[in-house]
């Protein structure tokens, strides 16, 4: 079954580029190996709500990878969150500086009936959103490990 994986973020704001880096490294691995059972389509997004809605419109299974601000968790930890849960943890995911981001995309899609049947959010705990490209070492290593072990889940289910 096809799954749409969307890496989102900003490459020029430090760890905010984690979702994009994850998507690119996974795509590289898929291109290098042909053993992946599941059929993935990998796309990138700047994280605006409209871009996300247009990307996942018509898809039944979607995975979004984004950076997460959560000072209570170690940088590089990857959390899996059910994007369709009514008690979606909005605040911890408010990493976007855009007026309309992932949260608004989910809320608006729900109202408009455009949500996929399954929406998994992989949230990578960030260390820094400082200006400039490049990930912090902990985030960089965590993404490498997750991509290397894919599709074996290396993330924790968000409670």
């Amino acid at each position: 079954m096809s799954i749409l994986l969307i890496g989102m973020g900003n490459m020029f704001r430090g760890d905010d580029g984690a979702g994009l880096v994850f998507a690119r490294r996974l795509l590289s691995r898929f291109n290098a190996e042909e053993h992946i059972d599941l059929e993935f389509e990998i796309r990138e997004s700047d994280g605006s709500a409209f871009s996300l809605i247009e990307l996942w419109r018509g898809w039944e299974r979607v995975m979004v990878v984004d950076a997460l601000i959560d000072a209570s968790r170690p940088p590089g930890q990857i959390l899996s969150i059910n994007g369709l849960r009514e008690d979606f943890p909005w605040d911890p995911l408010s990493v976007s500086t855009h007026a309309f981001g992932l949260i608004e995309a989910i809320k608006l899609s729900r109202v408009l009936g455009m949500l996929p049947k399954e929406l998994q959010v992989l949230a990578i705990v960030a260390e820094s959103f400082a200006m400039g490209d490049g990930l912090s070492p902990s985030v960089d290593q965590a993404i490498d490990m997750a991509v290397c072990q894919w599709p074996k889940p290396v993330f924790q289910t968000f409670q």
């Binding site: 309309f100 608004e104 809320k107 608006l108 109202v111 408009l112």
Partner: peptide, 8 residues
């Protein structure tokens, strides 16, 4: 308050 509420 916002577009999401308006969309309802």
């Amino acid at each position: 308050p916002d577009a999401v509420a308006m969309a309802k």
